[in-house]
């Protein structure tokens, strides 16, 4: 599998470590209420199709990136710097 780091370019997946779905970028407001926090902390989707995951370019530039990929076709569709997604 090849992942394109927005800074380093296309790289082998061994240079990256996987964190999981990009929920960390969508942290609710402290006052958002129990339901929103329950969802954020405990509930995860398991989609067949497009996902947005956090990857860390540990063996490269050290950037956190958000990778859009398809779990059915294994297609890697795109990647963005997490710092810019979160902005």
């Amino acid at each position: 599998m090849r992942i394109t780091c927005p800074i380093c370019g296309e790289r082998d997946s061994r240079e990256f470590s996987y964190r999981g779905a990009d929920v960390a970028l969508h942290r609710p407001d402290p006052e958002a209420g129990e339901a929103a926090w329950d969802d954020y902390v405990h509930l995860r989707d398991n989609p067949a199709g497009e996902t947005r995951d956090m990857w860390y370019h540990e063996g490269g530039c050290g950037a956190w990136i958000v990778v859009t990929r398809n779990t059915v076709t294994h297609e890697v569709i795109g990647s963005e710097l997490a710092a810019e997604v979160a902005r």
Binding site: C8, D12, R14, E15, G59, G60
Partner: peptide
């Protein structure tokens, strides 16, 4: 694990890699 061919890794190029 990076592409070291002349077309992609030229003199003056650098990389953080393993």
């Amino acid at each position: 694990p990076i592409d070291l061919r002349d077309g992609s890794f030229k003199r003056g190029h650098a990389a953080r890699t393993q």
